[in-house]
Nucleic acid binder design. Structure first.
Lengths: 128, 128
DNA sequence: ATCCCATATGGAGTTAACTCCAAGTCAAGC
DNA sequence: GCTTGACTTGGAGTTAACTCCATATGGGAT
């Protein structure tokens, strides 16, 4: 797959894809004879994983760079990598809890707004 | 409450508190005779609300500024304000779902790591 | 051969959200 | 009455994460 196709597929700009590779957020992408990126299945899996961890989970770029670096060092970093993921997972879980209670708070606020608005409408009715 | 106390209480720097006020993320704070901020109960509730919506829910500053501006215009913006909150609530709920499935994905990955690590350990045992 | 277009690189520019700084003011203590 | 320390303001600086740009190159169509 070319960079244009990957960009299209994931909704990441070509610049972002190159940027991610440049800073080590994804491992170096396969190239063809003329030096252009030719994303392999592996490469695409990395893009998918990183996109998910960045955009959806909001994991810090720094942690992901470290993860990729460890990955490239091979099997003797398995335990470290796992620990890194566990830490991020725990952070994410905590964040989720926090956000859930904020969602509840927002919902409550909305309900109070609805009540206030209904009250206002009734008052207007009475007047007219 | 002074700005130092509010800063302490919420873990927001004094600079951030002034910045929030400057850009309209919280309404103008009460002042004492010498012009220093003297946070009232109301003011503190705003800080609490905004901190929550920013840091925990990650609502965009822009939307919150609009909300505060509407609030300051009085009761005839009730419906607009409610709609604004509903939109943000829905976004937040969507984000939460997305994050939940990413959490699952991360968890799965961790489980696979654990299996791989256990396998490695067994292999080593056999060898030695 | 020439034109065109997608791609390449290194480096500069942008954006959001703070964060820091310089210079000034004010009340309290010595 | 002078110093000290917490506060004020407007504006500049920083950081993370892109995003854009200028310039160059490599193949395919005419």
């Amino acid at each position: 797959m070319t960079i244009a196709e990957v960009s299209e597929k994931f909704g990441l700009s070509q610049d972002t894809l190159r940027y991610y590779e440049r800073i080590g957020l994804i491992p170096p992408v396969t190239r063809n004879r003329s030096g252009n990126r030719e994303y392999s299945e592996e490469d695409i899996k990395w893009v998918d994983f990183i996109k998910c961890m960045r955009q959806s989970a909001g994991l810090p770029v720094e942690a992901l760079i470290e993860y990729v670096a460890l990955f490239q060092q091979g099997d003797n970093t398995l335990v470290t990598r796992k620990e890194l993921l566990v830490e991020q997972r725990d952070r994410l879980a905590a964040k989720l809890e926090e956000m859930t209670s904020t969602l509840v708070r927002l919902n409550d606020k909305i309900v109070r707004y609805e009540q206030t608005i209904v009250l206002k409408e009734k008052t207007l009715h009475k007047r007219n």
